[in-house]
């Protein structure tokens, strides 16, 4: 098993014919991902990358049975694209777009909360289940199949962690990039819960950063769950100054409880194997699993 995406997922690309959408859809198809089509309003009926283009997500759901979408729509229109996907009955909505206004995300997350769907992102690298489906912008070759799940707010730091895990002779079940924005669809806790409940996943790597309470919430849930499945954690930004946004819109220390130090203390307290050095993530996973 794996979580969120697999070889049977029927994936569409919103913003399919744009430059980002075209490039990454091409990479996904080359990886072997089951891309069944794409959506670009006004270009319905055309064929792009040998796949059908639809005007609306609803059409894609009705015609090719799409159940998963990846969104490359520009920031000004991305929240609308998320709501369209949710309305059409898409189950997994993965949003790569960076720079969506917070007000738009408040509206979108409120709109989708009673719909039967899960939003990943925005401002994330996507989700990959190695050997089955790459629904994101990550370099596929880094992620070898295995038994370690990854949850992370960051793109390249996820690749770094996966690379370290693979170099220890281990591999990945599913890596979930949850995104670095202040409002994201799937929280650290929800993503960790999915992996803890996945029978194939034997350990979870949880990578967070300064700002917000997501890692602390995940850690507390983990402690209360009583799960014996180990979690290896790292929090980036110990050296970041308070009150400054560090690249990701959500990465900003607001008070004393959302610093890297505070988060790591809570995680340790909840039984998570926390590493202080980002160079030791892979080593720690191997040590814990041995």
């Amino acid at each position: 098993m794996s979580v969120l995406v697999n070889k049977n997922s029927k994936i569409i690309v919103q913003g399919f014919t744009g430059s980002e959408g075209t490039f990454h859809a091409g990479q996904m198809i080359e990886y072997g991902t089951n891309v069944v089509g794409g959506v670009t309003p006004g270009k319905g009926g055309q064929t792009h990358l040998d796949k059908p283009v639809f005007n609306t997500v609803k059409e894609a759901v009705d015609s090719v049975g799409a159940d998963t979408t990846i969104i490359f729509v520009p920031p000004a229109f991305a929240a609308d694209a998320i709501m369209e996907a949710a309305d059409a009955g898409i189950k997994v909505i993965i949003t790569i777009t960076e720079g969506i206004p917070v007000a738009d995300m408040i509206t979108a997350s409120n709109y989708i909360k009673d719909k039967d769907c899960r939003l990943i992102g925005p401002n994330c690298p996507g989700v990959i289940t190695p050997g089955e489906a790459k629904v994101g912008i990550m370099p596929g070759f880094v992620f070898k199949k295995g038994k370690v799940g990854i949850v992370s707010k960051s793109g390249t730091l996820t690749y770094e962690a996966a690379d370290q895990v693979v170099k220890q002779g281990l591999g990945i079940t599913t890596a979930i990039g949850i995104g670095g924005d202040p409002i994201i669809g799937t929280t650290t806790k929800e993503a960790v819960e999915l992996l803890i409940n996945d029978s194939e996943t034997e350990a979870v790597v949880m990578i967070g950063e300064i700002g917000g309470q997501l890692e602390a919430d995940a850690a507390k849930w983990y402690k209360n769950s009583g799960s014996k499945k180990p979690i290896i954690g790292f929090i980036a930004g110990e050296t970041a100054p308070a009150g400054r946004t560090m690249g990701h819109a959500g990465a900003i220390v607001g008070g004393s409880d959302d610093t890297a130090q505070a988060k790591k203390a809570i995680m340790r307290d909840c039984g998570i194997h926390v590493v202080d050095s980002p160079a030791e993530i892979g080593k720690k996973v191997a040590e814990v699993l041995s």
Partner: peptide, 16 residues
């Protein structure tokens, strides 16, 4: 560095 998360992690590594 490329990427915000890796950039913060790199800063942390410099400190260590």
């Amino acid at each position: 560095v490329n990427g915000a998360g890796l950039a913060m992690a790199t800063m942390d590594l410099i400190k260590q």
